[in-house]
Design a protein around this nucleic acid. Sequence first.
DNA 1: CTGAAAGCGCTTACAG
DNA 2: CTGAAAGCGCTTACAG
Lengths: 354, 354
Amino acid sequence: MRCHALSIRHRPMSRRRNDPGAVTLHAVAARAGVSAMTVSNVINRTGRASADTRARVLSAIEALGYVPNPSARRLTGAQVACVGLICPDVDSVFLERMLAGVAFVAAECGVQLKIEAAANLSHDKTYEIAQGLVGKGAQALLLVPPFAEILGGDPHVSRLEVPIAAIATAHALPHIATIRIDNRSAARAVTERVLAQGRRRIAVLSGPLRHSDSVARLEGYRDALLEREVPVDPALCIACDFTFASGLAAARHLLGLPDRPDAIVAGNDDMAAAVLWTAHQSGLALPRDLSVTGFDDTALATRVWPPLTTVRQPVRAMAAAAMEYLARALRDPGCAREGHDTVLPFEVIDRASV
Amino acid sequence: MRCHALSIRHRPMSRRRNDPGAVTLHAVAARAGVSAMTVSNVINRTGRASADTRARVLSAIEALGYVPNPSARRLTGAQVACVGLICPDVDSVFLERMLAGVAFVAAECGVQLKIEAAANLSHDKTYEIAQGLVGKGAQALLLVPPFAEILGGDPHVSRLEVPIAAIATAHALPHIATIRIDNRSAARAVTERVLAQGRRRIAVLSGPLRHSDSVARLEGYRDALLEREVPVDPALCIACDFTFASGLAAARHLLGLPDRPDAIVAGNDDMAAAVLWTAHQSGLALPRDLSVTGFDDTALATRVWPPLTTVRQPVRAMAAAAMEYLARALRDPGCAREGHDTVLPFEVIDRASV
DNA sequence: CTGAAAGCGCTTACAG
DNA sequence: CTGAAAGCGCTTACAG
């Protein structure tokens, strides 16, 4: 049974409707025999209507297939309209997945994203972009790596006067809500996998040490070794920069060592992939001669040989938590003032590279 | 000099403003000494105001940093509000990049995305999702592979009564606007690279042959060979399915052949990466003993060794063209009725794998 | 518990 | 060329 929401057509003809067939709040109200306001109350504030009214309204909504118009909701300020996203303009599989996750969540929440790509990663330029985003209507800001790191220490961010959330940071930050995994524990857990195979000469490829997540992962590696009373050999700890090329150079160096490592723990999948390539070129049999682990569980992990044991971050869940926080902070500015830090569980994905 | 848009504060106090500091059309009008309508006219329909008025309005906009409120615009139907996107729930680097591109473009145009992930790729399920999206307020639909293929032949799509655009299809489609590259020419161009190196036993790994883009790429490969009068050897044409695993199996087979190929043209980067792995395992020196090419220029292309010569599709530009078409079709339904097919230029990226 | 009314910020047919 | 006014579809202080 289709209902044509006739009532709405009796109102004075509009200039130009967006979607002439759309079911409105008024149609629902007419059908339920209540005022528009009551319908709105039923939808938005549970418990402000009698059970009977509530039921009638709900069934009218159902019958008509009513979906509230988000633009109208936003116009009244009842819904978050626009979240600004500063997005690094770099070639990273992990960040691309993160962007896709954020887009997905934003669509789900009905929030409009305003995205600004940044190639220059300086503090000043980043701050300027943030200001621009706010000036253009962003009511809140969502940061992905490395922007939380860049903006994190700066007390000025509170001058932006919008709530800010950051995904995948290394730790809590003063004026920014953080949603992350425990990088240190994750790195420790994945290093454990290698130790469990009996490996003892375990090298590590870290990201840039000015990134605190790189440092946290390095610490996790150390934790794992120390617990098993395996000494940490500085000659096996190489500072790279998260790129495939840097992993290639480090792997060549390590595998050329007279007493080469029997395992390499990489700070991300890109570098781990580079290690695998180098090992193949050296004619090593994997994982027999060398165990390799990654971090992030990007698409790369299953497109190398052998597939990578790695750590998966719950990207989508992080984006959802960030969006949720932002919505809350927008309703209740008090909640934005206190610190917020959410630590989500990671997952070690076991594959054949260990 | 900062202007506080005082005039706006004199109006009766609102219930709860979305952003109390926002500059409105009225503030601009007051400052320029004209009506709100005139400001709107200046912004939207060029040429409906005198040069003088125009200049005054523009300078007021500039001085106040006025940015129109998109929610209000959408509410009047003057701006596209919401585009539905059906997105395959698969692990594909290329599709992830495409999603990111679409998100980026949507943000730029200020359109709200409504995304639905689909794991089941049947026609009926896809149609159902499309219907659901429209029912939930999507005014137009954007299709990414393989949904255009799935929905393409179906005359029923016009019953959805919204304009539909599809990105990265193999060819034009009856009731759907298409934005794509010339897959056949692209495959031909990349095969040329291999021929130019003097290779003559050139194998090809195609995607599933029910996908018309796979077929188009296969034809391009043939075109290139035929032009150089190199016979097409059916034993060297392997039908795969775009996955790394399928590429692995095909490569093992081909490289185990008594008269193995001296080049392999793959239908996408994933399969090309699999070929590289297999070649390494077989102890071949690359590209000396074997040339390999990919398709799509995903992140994978630079995270393998040697880096892949491949074809880049202008993902972002395709998304932008699709969004533009959709906006136009929404304003002028007539334009949606006739066929639309936009072919954008591709680019062959030369790297070390050939 | 329920509703009439004002308002969010914009656009547009219609007059002047 | 310019403007007053109605309207888009919703929410919310305020009354009853």
